[in-house]
Write a protein that binds this DNA or RNA. Structure first.
Length: 376
RNA sequence: GGGGAGAUACCAAAGUGGCCAACUGGGGCAGACUGUAAAUCUGCUGGCUCAUGCCUUCGUAGGUUCGAAUCCUGCUCUCCCCA
């Protein structure tokens, strides 16, 4: 895996780059659609590739391990073969589930004990086992096993949590070194910088992560309940410490505004469930602001879903029809909304890249941030 | 023609003397959602009011009672059974 910095903006930390993987090239900044269980919910591979323009998608270790199970994916020849997506794949390690599963998991030095949300059965994830599962899934980018520190964690908790994440990172690295890819393409491990909302912890975490030579670095534990300004502040602490010649991945973020603000601060990669989940729940993201398509005011609006949109669904369907589908709980409504939102997110980062390359990012961003936050 | 059951808010449906402006569903109207336990969850849904509160509501017209959606009588309508 190789990252090439194509252009560094002058009055911003924003960068345009190129990440080459064995499954294809990723132009950064990039948004990565989330396909937790191996599929981006409601979206065919053909739409992802041809209509939305996705360049890399996510899978999730926790979910795929529980169902269909690692053995089936290995038997299929890896996730690329299993789900038919032949572009790059990144798998999250299950660290976020350790955070979001709440009561049904317990952390120890060894790893995370948790109960399956499907059948209640007991399981143990360790840094070693999580690397092993991700080897079998065959992701191009493998995430370290971490604890996603909650946004409201106090200093002591964040410090202890960070120390655990750091010890786990070392174990992940050792396991990576002891094992090999199974399917003939290379796999890169990204460390995750934690540290809560505390600048000194974040800085220490970034330095510790950088000490591990890696093809890219992730910032985790943000947009998990802390104020947005705090998130931006933490990015500003971490990014100057991370090597400029490696991609930086802000995990789980976020809104279109969050993404532009983070790009402005030097982040290259993003993922978030918002475009798909919020889409299923009737929220559309557009250049001009946010639409709740369930609102009555769209009932007789026969204009296109998004006249500025790049997806074919944007002009194929009217707002009134999409509202009808979503209100009626027709599955096509969720599909159209998801497809629109993903296409919008991919357009957003592509346009950001274009603006960076044209040295006009900052002004464009300032204007976009205002209009994106509107409510239509 | 005879016998029986019933009429509650947008719909369905509880409630059968005071704890009822009225359970619960649905529908409607809004909101939330950030490395997906999510095609999920939350709130509101008679009127006025920021709220306490006040006013008008349980087919309809009367009556009993300190007090009625709830008890009594007339009327109207609906459904079921028998002829």
């Amino acid at each position: 895996m190789r990252f090439t910095l194509k252009h560094q903006a002058v009055n911003s930390e924003a960068r345009a780059g190129m990440l080459e993987t064995d499954h294809g090239v990723i132009e950064t900044p990039i948004f990565m659609p989330v396909g937790t269980a191996g599929s981006v919910k409601g979206i065919h591979v053909k739409e992802l590739k041809e209509d939305i323009g996705a360049q890399i998608i996510l899978g999730n270790t926790y979910h795929l391990y529980l169902r269909p199970g690692t053995a089936i994916i290995e038997e299929a020849g890896g996730l690329h073969k299993f789900n038919g997506w032949d572009g790059p794949i990144l798998t999250d390690s299950g660290g976020y589930q350790v955070f979001s599963l709440g009561d049904i998991r317990k952390l120890t030095e060894e790893g995370a004990r948790f109960q399956s949300h499907i059948d209640g059965s007991y399981h143990l994830f360790t840094p070693e086992s999580v690397i092993g599962i991700q080897r079998k899934i065959g992701a191009d980018i493998i995430m370290a096993f971490d604890e996603c520190t909650p946004g409201d964690a106090d200093y002591d908790y964040a410090k202890k949590s960070l120390a655990l994440t750091q010890r786990w990172l070392e174990r992940c690295c050792n396991e990576m070194a002891k094992t090999s890819p199974l399917y003939g393409h290379s796999q890169s491990l990204f460390p995750i910088v934690q540290g809560g909302v505390y600048a000194d912890l974040r800085a220490a975490a970034a330095k510790h992560a950088v000490a591990v030579s890696s093809d890219g670095y992730a910032i985790g534990g943000l947009s998990v309940g802390e104020p947005e300004e705090m998130m931006y502040a933490m990015i500003e602490v971490v990014n100057p410490i991370l090597p400029p010649d490696k991609p930086r991945y802000l995990m789980g973020v976020g809104t279109p505004v969050n993404i532009l603000e983070a790009i402005d601060r030097g982040v290259d990669m993003f993922d978030c469930v918002m475009p798909t989940r919020n889409g299923r729940n009737g929220m559309l993201f557009t250049k001009k602001g946010i639409i709740n398509i369930r609102n009555r005011k769209w009932a007789d609006d026969f204009s296109p879903v998004d006249p500025d949109g790049t997806s074919f669904v944007d002009k194929q369907y009217s707002r009134a029809f999409l509202r009808h589908l979503v209100i009626s709980n027709e599955m096509l409504g969720a599909q159209i909304a998801s497809q629109h939102n993903l296409a919008f997110y991919l357009w957003l980062v592509k346009e950001a890249r274009r603006q960076i390359l044209a040295d006009s990012f900052k002004n464009w961003k300032e204007e976009m941030v205002i209009s994106l936050a509107e409510r239509l």
